[in-house]
């Protein structure tokens, strides 16, 4: 049971525009996740959906329910705050883990460890792989 027929036209148009914008932005971010070539580039793309896409779709939901119930419905702000706060934490931990794995793998292959991060190289450090 929905109340779309009780919605005034301006609210319907506003909800539709917010919904389409949010969904399109999210899809663009997810396509970036699929298309970009390295992991460190791919990390950036889906955050488009977690910030801008979430804000737009939550705004659409807020407009729709506020107009239908003739009172401010603001609990979608909770989802926006949750997404904006948790996404950087999760992705920072994930990129730290990925960089740790890349560094360990490069050290195992005997390549210089500090190519990505120059300060990670210790001056007197013998490369691994040579028995010392």
């Amino acid at each position: 049971m929905n109340g779309i027929e009780h919605l005034p036209p301006w609210a319907a148009v506003l909800t539709a525009v917010f919904l389409l914008t949010g969904a399109a932005v999210t899809l663009i971010g997810s396509l970036g996740l699929l298309q970009l070539s390295t992991f460190y580039e791919r990390v950036h793309a889906p955050t488009l959906g977690t910030t801008l896409g979430t804000v737009f779709i939550a705004a659409a939901s807020m407009v729709y329910f506020s107009v239908l119930q003739t009172r401010p419905v603001l609990h979608e702000v909770l989802i926006v705050v949750l997404g904006v706060v948790t996404t950087p934490i999760a992705l920072t931990v994930l990129v730290g883990a990925a960089h740790f794995r890349d560094t360990a793998e490069r050290a195992q292959l005997g390549e210089p460890v500090g190519r990505a991060l120059p300060h990670a190289r210790v001056p007197g450090d013998a490369p691994t792989g040579k028995a010392g």
Binding site: I4, L7, P9, A12, V13, T15, A16, L19, I57
Partner: peptide, 12 residues
């Protein structure tokens, strides 16, 4: 505009 909202929900 209600029809437009219905279709845009589907598209989204």
């Amino acid at each position: 505009s209600q029809l437009m909202l219905t279709y845009s929900l589907l598209v989204a």
